[in-house]
């Protein structure tokens, strides 16, 4: 609401018609597009990491190969958690549009817990791998694996911090227009991370095990 005060049209009598409550991104259009461009550039970062992994994915240096070290049950669980978190975030959005703060916060909290579980299991997996001697410095394959999956995990961690901030701010500001704009951006970020994970579980884990 505060950015409306900067609008020179605020004095015009038609202004209220143009900016009703159901216009969710009053002035947010540029933000949404800008955030989309950021996501696309982030996709390019992951593209280069996937390319690097693809190039060295069989450079085992005599070390462990994917079939020996990847626990697909754990990966399946992790995939389910992240996909579920994407779905629960989608469940929060209609409540946000309708201005129901309580339900929005509840769905976001569930999303956050699922994301936290995903991150915990990923760190557990990394710990297991390093304990087995499959550490990043063992081979080019493992360096690329830890870089690619670790970068995705770092993104999820940032998403969790952002989600926590949103939960706190929802308590303070409710569902104001800036809050809706931020939540739309966060939902795009979260869904984007799930899309990257599709590439990870297919290209790194499943393809690694069958090749």
């Amino acid at each position: 609401m505060t950015d409306h005060a900067l609008d020179p049209r605020a004095a015009s009598p038609t202004w209220h018609l143009a900016e009703q409550e159901d216009h969710d991104h009053g002035g947010g259009g540029a933000t949404i597009l800008g955030f989309w461009i950021y996501l696309m550039s982030d996709a390019l970062i992951f593209a280069s990491l996937f390319a690097m992994f693809g190039v060295v994915s069989t450079s085992y240096a005599g070390g462990p190969i994917p079939r020996e070290i990847f626990d697909l049950k754990l990966v399946a669980l992790n995939t389910a958690l992240l996909l579920a978190s994407s779905i629960t975030f989608g469940e929060a959005m209609p409540h946000m549009e309708a201005g129901r703060v309580g339900q929005t916060r509840a769905w976001l909290a569930i999303t956050g817990l699922l994301g936290l579980a995903f991150l915990g299991i990923e760190l557990y997996e990394f710990g297991q791998l390093i304990a087995e001697g499959a550490s990043p410095q063992r081979s080019a394959f493992l360096s690329a694996f830890f870089t690619l999956v670790g970068t995705h995990g770092a993104h999820v961690a940032v998403g969790l911090i952002w989600l926590t901030v949103m939960l706190i701010q929802l308590g303070q500001h409710g569902l104001s227009l800036p809050m809706k704009r931020r939540l739309i951006c966060l939902s795009m970020f979260w869904h984007f991370l799930d899309i990257i994970w599709i590439g990870v579980f297919t290209f790194v884990y499943l393809y690694g095990v069958i090749r």
């Binding site: 597009l33 989309w36 461009i37 696309m40 996709a43 390019l44 593209a47 280069s48 996937f50 390319a51 690097m52 693809g54 190039v55």
Partner: peptide, 21 residues
């Protein structure tokens, strides 16, 4: 514009990964 940006990114992603490999 989002679709245009997405298609452009998809082309670059395919070129980067496919070309490198």
């Amino acid at each position: 514009w989002t679709l245009l940006a997405f298609l452009f990114t998809a082309v670059i992603v395919v070129l980067t990964i496919g070309g490198s490999v």
